[in-house]
Amino acid sequence: MASMTQTNQTQKVWTREEIESLAGRIIKWILIVFFAVITVFPFYWMLNLSLRPEQDVLTNPTKLFPSGEDISNTLHPVGCWLRYGTDDPEENPAVPADCTNVFSRSSYTIVLVQQGFPPFIGNSVLLALLTVSLTLLLAIPAAYAITRLTYQGRNAMSWGILLIYMFPAIVLAIPLFVVFTRTGLAGSLEGLVIVYLSGTLPVALYMLRSYFVTIPPDLEEAALIDGCTYASTIWRITIPLATPAIASVALYTFMIAWNEFLYAFLFLFTQRDRWTLPLGLQQLNDQEVPVTALMAGSLIISIPIIVIFFFFERFLTRGLTAGAVKG
Protein backbone atom coordinates (compact mmCIF):
# COMPACT_ATOMS: atom_id res chain seq x y z
CA MET A 1 0.00 0.00 0.00
CA ALA A 2 2.74 2.35 0.95
CA SER A 3 4.67 1.74 -2.22
CA MET A 4 1.63 2.47 -4.36
CA THR A 5 1.12 5.89 -2.84
CA GLN A 6 4.77 6.63 -3.36
CA THR A 7 4.49 5.87 -7.08
CA ASN A 8 1.45 8.06 -7.36
CA GLN A 9 3.11 10.94 -5.58
CA THR A 10 6.46 11.18 -7.35
CA GLN A 11 6.62 11.77 -11.07
CA LYS A 12 7.44 8.71 -13.15
CA VAL A 13 11.23 8.23 -13.26
CA TRP A 14 12.60 7.20 -16.62
CA THR A 15 15.09 4.37 -16.42
CA ARG A 16 18.08 4.28 -18.69
CA GLU A 17 16.56 1.22 -20.37
CA GLU A 18 13.41 3.12 -21.25
CA ILE A 19 15.20 6.23 -22.48
CA GLU A 20 17.51 4.22 -24.65
CA SER A 21 14.80 2.08 -26.17
CA LEU A 22 12.63 5.11 -26.89
CA ALA A 23 15.57 6.90 -28.50
CA GLY A 24 16.38 3.66 -30.32
CA ARG A 25 12.89 3.52 -31.78
CA ILE A 26 13.04 7.13 -32.96
CA ILE A 27 16.50 6.68 -34.49
CA LYS A 28 15.37 3.45 -36.08
CA TRP A 29 12.54 5.16 -37.95
CA ILE A 30 14.81 7.99 -38.99
CA LEU A 31 17.23 5.42 -40.35
CA ILE A 32 14.48 3.49 -42.14
CA VAL A 33 13.47 6.67 -43.92
CA PHE A 34 17.10 7.51 -44.65
CA PHE A 35 17.89 4.11 -46.18
CA ALA A 36 14.63 3.99 -48.11
CA VAL A 37 15.38 7.39 -49.62
CA ILE A 38 18.98 6.70 -50.58
CA THR A 39 18.17 3.34 -52.15
CA VAL A 40 14.95 4.15 -53.98
CA PHE A 41 15.35 7.83 -54.81
CA PRO A 42 17.99 7.43 -57.57
CA PHE A 43 15.77 4.96 -59.38
CA TYR A 44 12.73 7.16 -58.93
CA TRP A 45 14.79 10.02 -60.32
CA MET A 46 15.57 8.01 -63.46
CA LEU A 47 11.84 7.57 -63.97
CA ASN A 48 11.10 11.21 -63.18
CA LEU A 49 13.70 12.59 -65.60
CA SER A 50 12.87 10.12 -68.34
CA LEU A 51 9.25 11.30 -68.36
CA ARG A 52 9.93 15.05 -68.50
CA PRO A 53 10.99 17.14 -71.50
CA GLU A 54 14.70 17.92 -71.59
CA GLN A 55 14.19 21.69 -71.34
CA ASP A 56 12.16 21.24 -68.16
CA VAL A 57 14.84 18.98 -66.69
CA LEU A 58 17.49 21.60 -67.35
CA THR A 59 15.57 24.54 -65.93
CA ASN A 60 13.95 22.81 -62.93
CA PRO A 61 16.57 20.42 -61.55
CA THR A 62 14.67 19.83 -58.31
CA LYS A 63 11.14 19.34 -59.65
CA LEU A 64 9.94 16.16 -57.97
CA PHE A 65 7.08 15.01 -60.22
CA PRO A 66 6.41 15.04 -63.94
CA SER A 67 3.11 16.60 -64.94
CA GLY A 68 0.36 14.43 -66.36
CA GLU A 69 0.87 16.13 -69.70
CA ASP A 70 4.59 15.24 -69.66
CA ILE A 71 3.77 11.62 -68.98
CA SER A 72 1.28 11.30 -71.81
CA ASN A 73 3.62 13.18 -74.18
CA THR A 74 6.36 10.69 -73.39
CA LEU A 75 4.24 7.58 -73.56
CA HIS A 76 2.23 8.48 -76.64
CA PRO A 77 5.12 7.94 -79.13
CA VAL A 78 5.83 4.58 -77.49
CA GLY A 79 2.22 3.63 -78.16
CA CYS A 80 2.63 4.75 -81.78
CA TRP A 81 5.76 2.65 -82.08
CA LEU A 82 4.05 -0.42 -80.70
CA ARG A 83 1.05 0.04 -82.99
CA TYR A 84 2.67 1.08 -86.27
CA GLY A 85 6.40 0.39 -85.88
CA THR A 86 7.27 3.73 -87.47
CA ASP A 87 6.44 7.42 -87.25
CA ASP A 88 6.85 7.97 -90.96
CA PRO A 89 3.60 7.91 -92.98
CA GLU A 90 5.58 7.15 -96.14
CA GLU A 91 6.70 3.84 -94.66
CA ASN A 92 3.35 2.89 -93.24
CA PRO A 93 0.31 4.76 -94.61
CA ALA A 94 -1.70 3.78 -91.54
CA VAL A 95 0.32 6.17 -89.32
CA PRO A 96 -2.15 8.88 -88.19
CA ALA A 97 -1.27 12.55 -87.97
CA ASP A 98 -0.69 12.52 -84.21
CA CYS A 99 1.87 9.75 -84.65
CA THR A 100 3.81 11.41 -87.43
CA ASN A 101 7.44 12.27 -86.64
CA VAL A 102 6.96 11.90 -82.90
CA PHE A 103 9.79 9.51 -82.07
CA SER A 104 12.31 12.25 -81.32
CA ARG A 105 9.92 13.74 -78.74
CA SER A 106 9.96 10.84 -76.29
CA SER A 107 13.03 9.67 -74.39
CA TYR A 108 11.87 6.07 -74.71
CA THR A 109 11.44 6.08 -78.47
CA ILE A 110 14.79 7.85 -78.84
CA VAL A 111 16.43 4.93 -77.08
CA LEU A 112 14.31 2.10 -78.42
CA VAL A 113 13.81 3.23 -82.01
CA GLN A 114 16.33 5.87 -83.00
CA GLN A 115 19.29 4.42 -81.11
CA GLY A 116 18.29 0.88 -81.97
CA PHE A 117 18.24 -0.74 -78.55
CA PRO A 118 16.08 -3.81 -79.28
CA PRO A 119 18.98 -5.84 -80.78
CA PHE A 120 21.04 -5.03 -77.67
CA ILE A 121 18.20 -6.34 -75.53
CA GLY A 122 18.25 -9.52 -77.59
CA ASN A 123 22.03 -9.86 -77.22
CA SER A 124 21.89 -9.27 -73.47
CA VAL A 125 19.11 -11.81 -73.00
CA LEU A 126 20.90 -14.37 -75.15
CA LEU A 127 24.20 -13.82 -73.37
CA ALA A 128 22.61 -14.00 -69.92
CA LEU A 129 20.60 -17.13 -70.71
CA LEU A 130 23.60 -18.86 -72.26
CA THR A 131 25.70 -18.01 -69.23
CA VAL A 132 23.03 -19.22 -66.83
CA SER A 133 22.40 -22.51 -68.60
CA LEU A 134 26.07 -23.36 -69.15
CA THR A 135 26.91 -22.43 -65.57
CA LEU A 136 24.23 -24.74 -64.24
CA LEU A 137 25.13 -27.50 -66.69
CA LEU A 138 28.75 -27.51 -65.59
CA ALA A 139 28.47 -26.51 -61.94
CA ILE A 140 25.81 -28.97 -60.78
CA PRO A 141 27.82 -32.13 -61.64
CA ALA A 142 30.98 -30.52 -60.29
CA ALA A 143 29.30 -29.53 -57.03
CA TYR A 144 27.91 -33.03 -56.75
CA ALA A 145 31.39 -34.50 -57.16
CA ILE A 146 32.89 -32.11 -54.63
CA THR A 147 30.30 -32.85 -51.94
CA ARG A 148 29.39 -36.48 -52.56
CA LEU A 149 32.39 -38.29 -53.99
CA THR A 150 35.66 -38.87 -52.22
CA TYR A 151 38.77 -38.41 -54.29
CA GLN A 152 42.23 -37.03 -53.91
CA GLY A 153 42.58 -33.29 -54.36
CA ARG A 154 38.95 -32.59 -53.51
CA ASN A 155 39.67 -29.87 -50.98
CA ALA A 156 42.44 -28.38 -53.06
CA MET A 157 40.04 -28.15 -55.95
CA SER A 158 37.25 -26.42 -54.12
CA TRP A 159 39.54 -23.93 -52.40
CA GLY A 160 41.66 -23.35 -55.47
CA ILE A 161 38.63 -22.40 -57.50
CA LEU A 162 37.47 -20.00 -54.83
CA LEU A 163 40.90 -18.40 -54.65
CA ILE A 164 40.93 -17.84 -58.38
CA TYR A 165 37.67 -16.01 -57.99
CA MET A 166 39.53 -13.28 -56.10
CA PHE A 167 41.62 -12.45 -59.12
CA PRO A 168 41.35 -8.92 -60.50
CA ALA A 169 39.31 -8.90 -63.70
CA ILE A 170 41.45 -6.14 -65.17
CA VAL A 171 44.63 -8.22 -64.78
CA LEU A 172 43.06 -10.99 -66.85
CA ALA A 173 41.61 -8.54 -69.31
CA ILE A 174 44.81 -7.74 -71.24
CA PRO A 175 45.92 -11.31 -72.05
CA LEU A 176 42.37 -12.42 -72.73
CA PHE A 177 41.95 -9.52 -75.08
CA VAL A 178 45.13 -10.56 -76.90
CA VAL A 179 44.20 -14.24 -77.09
CA PHE A 180 40.70 -13.43 -78.25
CA THR A 181 41.97 -11.09 -80.92
CA ARG A 182 44.33 -13.76 -82.15
CA THR A 183 41.89 -16.65 -82.10
CA GLY A 184 39.10 -14.66 -83.68
CA LEU A 185 36.92 -15.01 -80.60
CA ALA A 186 36.88 -11.26 -80.08
CA GLY A 187 33.55 -9.83 -81.13
CA SER A 188 31.75 -13.11 -80.62
CA LEU A 189 29.20 -13.84 -77.93
CA GLU A 190 30.49 -17.41 -77.55
CA GLY A 191 33.90 -16.11 -76.48
CA LEU A 192 32.34 -13.72 -74.01
CA VAL A 193 30.29 -16.55 -72.52
CA ILE A 194 33.49 -18.51 -71.81
CA VAL A 195 34.97 -15.51 -69.99
CA TYR A 196 31.79 -15.03 -67.98
CA LEU A 197 31.84 -18.72 -67.08
CA SER A 198 35.25 -18.33 -65.50
CA GLY A 199 33.63 -15.79 -63.17
CA THR A 200 30.30 -17.49 -62.56
CA LEU A 201 31.45 -21.09 -62.15
CA PRO A 202 33.40 -20.54 -58.93
CA VAL A 203 30.48 -18.77 -57.24
CA ALA A 204 27.99 -21.30 -58.54
CA LEU A 205 30.16 -24.11 -57.30
CA TYR A 206 30.56 -22.51 -53.92
CA MET A 207 26.87 -21.73 -53.49
CA LEU A 208 25.77 -25.20 -54.60
CA ARG A 209 28.34 -26.87 -52.43
CA SER A 210 27.20 -25.07 -49.31
CA TYR A 211 23.64 -26.14 -50.10
CA PHE A 212 24.44 -29.75 -51.02
CA VAL A 213 26.13 -30.38 -47.70
CA THR A 214 22.88 -29.53 -45.93
CA ILE A 215 20.98 -32.24 -47.87
CA PRO A 216 21.38 -35.67 -46.25
CA PRO A 217 22.91 -38.08 -48.77
CA ASP A 218 20.64 -41.00 -47.74
CA LEU A 219 18.23 -40.66 -50.65
CA GLU A 220 20.99 -40.57 -53.21
CA GLU A 221 22.71 -43.56 -51.66
CA ALA A 222 19.44 -45.51 -51.70
CA ALA A 223 18.95 -44.66 -55.38
CA LEU A 224 22.49 -45.81 -56.20
CA ILE A 225 21.98 -49.08 -54.35
CA ASP A 226 18.72 -49.63 -56.21
CA GLY A 227 20.67 -49.52 -59.43
CA CYS A 228 20.33 -45.93 -60.58
CA THR A 229 23.33 -44.60 -62.48
CA TYR A 230 25.09 -41.50 -61.17
CA ALA A 231 23.60 -39.45 -63.97
CA SER A 232 20.03 -40.43 -63.16
CA THR A 233 20.66 -40.00 -59.43
CA ILE A 234 21.79 -36.43 -60.00
CA TRP A 235 18.90 -35.78 -62.36
CA ARG A 236 16.13 -37.40 -60.29
CA ILE A 237 17.26 -36.87 -56.71
CA THR A 238 19.91 -34.19 -56.29
CA ILE A 239 18.52 -31.55 -58.63
CA PRO A 240 14.93 -31.64 -57.30
CA LEU A 241 16.21 -31.46 -53.71
CA ALA A 242 18.49 -28.51 -54.46
CA THR A 243 15.96 -26.44 -56.40
CA PRO A 244 16.22 -23.36 -54.13
CA ALA A 245 19.99 -23.24 -54.42
CA ILE A 246 19.86 -23.81 -58.15
CA ALA A 247 17.34 -21.01 -58.51
CA SER A 248 19.55 -18.62 -56.61
CA VAL A 249 22.58 -19.59 -58.69
CA ALA A 250 20.56 -18.99 -61.83
CA LEU A 251 19.44 -15.57 -60.60
CA TYR A 252 22.86 -14.49 -59.51
CA THR A 253 24.49 -15.68 -62.71
CA PHE A 254 21.86 -13.88 -64.72
CA MET A 255 22.62 -10.73 -62.77
CA ILE A 256 26.36 -10.96 -63.45
CA ALA A 257 25.92 -11.50 -67.16
CA TRP A 258 23.22 -8.86 -67.49
CA ASN A 259 25.18 -6.16 -65.67
CA GLU A 260 28.70 -6.90 -66.86
CA PHE A 261 30.44 -4.05 -68.62
CA LEU A 262 34.24 -4.37 -68.78
CA TYR A 263 34.59 -7.57 -70.79
CA ALA A 264 31.65 -6.72 -73.01
CA PHE A 265 33.39 -3.45 -73.78
CA LEU A 266 36.74 -5.13 -74.46
CA PHE A 267 35.50 -7.91 -76.66
CA LEU A 268 32.45 -6.55 -78.45
CA PHE A 269 33.32 -2.90 -78.94
CA THR A 270 34.09 -3.17 -82.64
CA GLN A 271 30.92 -5.15 -83.42
CA ARG A 272 27.97 -2.86 -82.93
CA ASP A 273 25.42 -5.53 -83.82
CA ARG A 274 26.63 -7.68 -80.92
CA TRP A 275 26.58 -4.98 -78.24
CA THR A 276 24.94 -5.73 -74.93
CA LEU A 277 22.65 -3.29 -73.14
CA PRO A 278 25.27 -1.88 -70.75
CA LEU A 279 27.66 -1.32 -73.64
CA GLY A 280 24.96 0.26 -75.79
CA LEU A 281 23.97 2.54 -72.94
CA GLN A 282 27.55 3.57 -72.23
CA GLN A 283 28.12 4.42 -75.88
CA LEU A 284 24.92 6.45 -75.89
CA ASN A 285 26.61 8.85 -73.54
CA ASP A 286 29.22 9.75 -76.15
CA GLN A 287 26.57 10.79 -78.63
CA GLU A 288 24.45 13.87 -78.55
CA VAL A 289 21.41 12.31 -76.94
CA PRO A 290 19.33 14.20 -74.37
CA VAL A 291 19.84 13.28 -70.74
CA THR A 292 16.21 12.17 -70.55
CA ALA A 293 17.00 9.43 -73.08
CA LEU A 294 20.00 8.33 -71.00
CA MET A 295 17.68 8.02 -68.03
CA ALA A 296 15.14 6.07 -70.06
CA GLY A 297 17.92 3.71 -71.15
CA SER A 298 19.17 3.31 -67.59
CA LEU A 299 15.68 2.47 -66.45
CA ILE A 300 15.13 0.00 -69.29
CA ILE A 301 18.20 -2.03 -68.34
CA SER A 302 17.54 -1.81 -64.59
CA ILE A 303 13.91 -2.84 -64.61
CA PRO A 304 14.27 -6.50 -65.66
CA ILE A 305 16.85 -7.21 -62.98
CA ILE A 306 14.86 -5.37 -60.30
CA VAL A 307 11.61 -7.13 -61.24
CA ILE A 308 13.23 -10.56 -61.33
CA PHE A 309 14.88 -9.80 -58.05
CA PHE A 310 11.69 -8.68 -56.37
CA PHE A 311 9.96 -11.91 -57.30
CA PHE A 312 12.78 -14.13 -56.13
CA GLU A 313 14.30 -11.98 -53.37
CA ARG A 314 14.25 -14.77 -50.83
CA PHE A 315 16.26 -17.13 -53.01
CA LEU A 316 18.76 -14.52 -53.98
CA THR A 317 19.32 -13.30 -50.45
CA ARG A 318 20.02 -16.81 -49.25
CA GLY A 319 22.27 -17.55 -52.20
CA LEU A 320 24.20 -14.32 -51.85
CA THR A 321 25.07 -14.93 -48.24
CA ALA A 322 25.86 -18.57 -48.81
CA GLY A 323 28.16 -17.96 -51.70
CA ALA A 324 30.05 -14.84 -50.67
CA VAL A 325 29.11 -13.32 -53.95
CA LYS A 326 31.37 -10.92 -55.76
CA GLY A 327 30.64 -7.28 -56.32
Binding site: N259, F261, I301, I305
Partner: peptide
Protein backbone atom coordinates in the same frame (compact mmCIF):
# COMPACT_ATOMS: atom_id res chain seq x y z
CA UNK B 1 21.21 -2.70 -60.55
CA UNK B 2 23.62 -2.51 -63.51
CA UNK B 3 26.61 -0.35 -62.65
CA UNK B 4 26.25 1.63 -65.84
CA UNK B 5 22.76 2.86 -65.03
CA UNK B 6 23.51 3.75 -61.41
CA UNK B 7 26.67 5.55 -62.53
CA UNK B 8 24.55 7.58 -64.96
CA UNK B 9 21.98 8.54 -62.38
Amino acid sequence: APVISVAFI
